[in-house]
Amino acid sequence: MDYAIQQILNALSFGAEYALIALGLAIVFSIMGLVNFAHGEVIAFGGYSMVIVGTLLTRNPFLLMGAVLLACVLVSVLLERVAFRTVRKADLTTGLLTAFGVSIILQNLFLLLGSPRPIPATQFIFLDRTITLGAVQVSSLQIYETLATAVAIGFLLFFLRRTTLGLAMRAAALDFEMVRLCGLRANRVIATAFAVSGLLAGLACIFIMARRGSVLPHMGFDPVLTAFVACVIGGFGSLPGAVLGGFLLGAVEVAVLVLLPQSYGGLAQAVVFALVALILVWRPDGILSPAREKGDKV
């Protein structure tokens, strides 16, 4: 019983992290058709900001969390401004290559200005304790992660349904030009998308830092790659799809680890991707593929 609960929590917390990052990718993709592979470096930037602010200004973990969120939002909006705005009208491949370029440049900057070795930043580790709930021992971090993701999704839903900018983002996913014809500035809508995406990256960064306790230049790349797969499973550009894909991937990953005999542990990734391939045979566009027509990129 406790084993089952532990594994379910495992799956939820893995899924939560993927879902947060996948949502960040999906929001940007849905309105401007850009697969933002530099999203991982936004997460890493959050980690480095934590090191800097943590050494120079405050060791208070809650202020630091605020700083991480703020740093991720700012750098995400800044990347749009300096890198992606210029290729906004270009085709998908150009955008993709630009994102890869930005990703590589940032990783190298972190390497040059930081260090190729992990830099410790342990202020969030306190989130990860073993706690006993009744007869079950679980990790507190996993509970926080699942709850925080649920709350973030709740806020996102509220934002997308109840605010004009949120409505505009949903509308822009379908017909960006029509949104502009309604009098909303394209730059404002896109900047908002990057800000929201950065905020979600910041949240993911806090949990990644709580688990790792150190930063590395390429620490964001693998999670973003996995989140990308989650997006593909769910249907690229669909926000519910990103959440579903994230949690599904978390569940499959844990199930494979649990069900596969120990000696096959190394095959876990391979089995996960084989299952992903099967899903795509069944639904080539992902499970919740969004409407066919994609918005113009303005």
């Binding site: 004009t164 509308a171 309604c182 009098g183 909303l184």
Partner: peptide
């Protein structure tokens, strides 16, 4: 309703 709200977005 949301379509109508969008119509007024620039107001």
């Amino acid at each position: 309703r949301e379509n109508l709200v969008m119509g007024a977005a620039g107001r």
